[in-house]
Simulated scan of single mutants.
Amino acid sequence: MSAAPTPADARSGARTAAVPARHAVVTEAPTAAGTAREISSYWTSARMRAALPIEQLVDGLTRSLGPGRSAEHAARARTRPRQVRAPRSTGKLFFRVDGADAVCTASAINTKKRNQVITAGHCVHTGPDVGLLQQPHFYSDWVYVPRYRNGHAPYGKWVANNAYAFNGWIEHEAFRFDQAIISFKRHGRHRLVDVTGGNDVVWGKPQREWGVRIWGWPAEDPFDGETAKRCDGRTVPFHDSADASMHACALTGGASGGPWFLPRGRTANSGRIWAVTSRRVLERPVLLARPIPSEIRRMIRAANR
């Protein structure tokens, strides 16, 4: 289902608007009910293959161009998703949403604890608009599978320990704050980044960048979520919003939370992440993300105490 930005998002996303201090507050998810063994055992290959993109379970994660906009976005359509070997430091993120199995994309990051990933805020929390019958809440039972492919976990299944989201997302669905960090338990004696390598997180970048590389595990038609895909190209501002966009990048649901890498310092397995996939446009293959805000430093500190 398509959705225009909310008024709260428009206010918080405006370049000249002051960001309420409350939006930058970081909230930690409740402690998991199950043990690490129980959660890991739940995520069998069959369940991982059958899990649905979060976009199919939660409204508002796609955007409509509105009347007369489709032709404008058909221009300069040269970026296509490519199927290539994913970096070790990226992977598929599985979690439970009100009894359903869901997926996003995530990437390991270089932090003090060396056991964390960055993903989208909407891959850890519902946001405020969940209807009359539910309360806003965190999801549960996250498992991260680096370089997932066809039901296999070549670097293991990592069970979450904690998850962190901004109140700007939790209370206002402000896409400026659509980022989250998840911490994971050790796998045997090993920490995540020691096994897969990690990426640097950078903030405050402009919407217009050249040589950007985006990774994701798209799981909606024409993709099945079983292999990673990537787009390469430049990013530009999306109309008059604070979104950065890559045109003709046809990654579909399941790619949410995937990394946007800058060209400088990028290797086959790591790089510098300046945004994570937030939404896509329905009428044309356009992927959207907000450049990571400076408030991410607060989240990193909270997750590494």
Results as ranks from 00 to 15, higher is better:
Ala29Glu: 04
Arg49Gln: 15
Pro285Val: 15
Arg297Trp: 07
Asp59Val: 12
Val25Ala: 11
Asn167Lys: 14
Thr6Cys: 10
Ala4Ile: 14
Ala250Arg: 11
Ile292Gly: 01
Val286Pro: 02
Thr252Arg: 08
Lys157Gln: 10
Leu251Trp: 00
Gly265His: 07
Glu171Val: 10
Leu57Asn: 09
Phe184Ser: 04
Ala120Ile: 03
Gly211Trp: 12
Pro218Phe: 13
Ser12Arg: 11
Arg301Glu: 12
Thr27Asn: 08
Ala174Ile: 07
Gly198Phe: 09
Ala219Ile: 03
Phe177Arg: 11
Ile296Ser: 14
Arg297Pro: 02
Gly271Thr: 08
Val26Glu: 01
Arg213Gln: 13
Ala86Asp: 01
Glu209Leu: 10
Asp194His: 12
Ser12Val: 11
Asp98Phe: 11
Ala250Gly: 15
Asp141His: 09
Asp129Gly: 03
His247Thr: 13
Gly211Ser: 12
Trp169Asp: 09
Asp224Ala: 11
Asp101Lys: 07
Gly131Gln: 10
Gln134Lys: 15
Gly225Gln: 08
Arg76Met: 14
Asp141Thr: 05
Arg96Trp: 03
Cys123Ile: 07
Lys157Val: 00
Ala50Gln: 15
Ala86Glu: 01
Thr44Gln: 01
Asn199Thr: 09
Trp43Lys: 05
Val159Trp: 00
Ala163Val: 10
Met48Gly: 03
Thr119Phe: 05
Phe95Arg: 03
Asn115Pro: 05
Arg114Ile: 06
Thr196Gly: 01
Ala77Met: 07
His122Lys: 08
Ile300Gln: 00
Ala244Pro: 01
Gly265Ala: 06
Lys157Cys: 00
Leu65Asp: 08
Leu52Val: 11
Lys157Ile: 00
Arg301Ile: 09
Arg11His: 13
Leu61Ser: 00
Arg114Leu: 10
Gln207His: 07
Tyr148Cys: 07
His125Met: 13
Ala8Cys: 03
Pro20Ser: 13
Gly99Phe: 14
Met48Pro: 01
Cys249Ser: 06
Cys249Phe: 06
Gly156Pro: 02
Pro222Glu: 13
Phe238Pro: 04
Ile118Thr: 00
Ser245Tyr: 07
Phe177His: 15
Ala174Pro: 03
Ala303Pro: 06
Gly233Tyr: 03
Val212Cys: 04
Gly254Pro: 08
Leu93Pro: 02
Thr126Asn: 00
Lys229Val: 15
Gly68Leu: 13
Cys231Gly: 03
Ala74Arg: 15
Ala244Gly: 10
Gly216Lys: 02
Asp59Arg: 14
Cys231Pro: 00
Ala3Arg: 06
Leu132Trp: 11
Gly131Ala: 10
Met1Trp: 13
Gly258Tyr: 03
Ile170Glu: 02
Leu282Ala: 13
Trp210His: 12
Gly156Lys: 00
Leu282Thr: 11
Pro259Trp: 07
Val84Tyr: 02
Val195Ala: 03
Trp215His: 00
Asp194Ile: 07
Ser41Phe: 05
Arg284Phe: 09
Asn162Phe: 04
Ala71Trp: 13
Gly211Thr: 09
Ala102Asp: 04
Arg96Met: 08
Ala108Asp: 05
Ala10Arg: 15
Arg230Trp: 04
Phe175Lys: 06
Leu93Arg: 00
Arg11Asn: 14
Thr111Leu: 07
Lys205Val: 14
Arg96Lys: 09
Ile118Arg: 01
Asp200Ser: 14
Arg297Phe: 08
Gln179Cys: 12
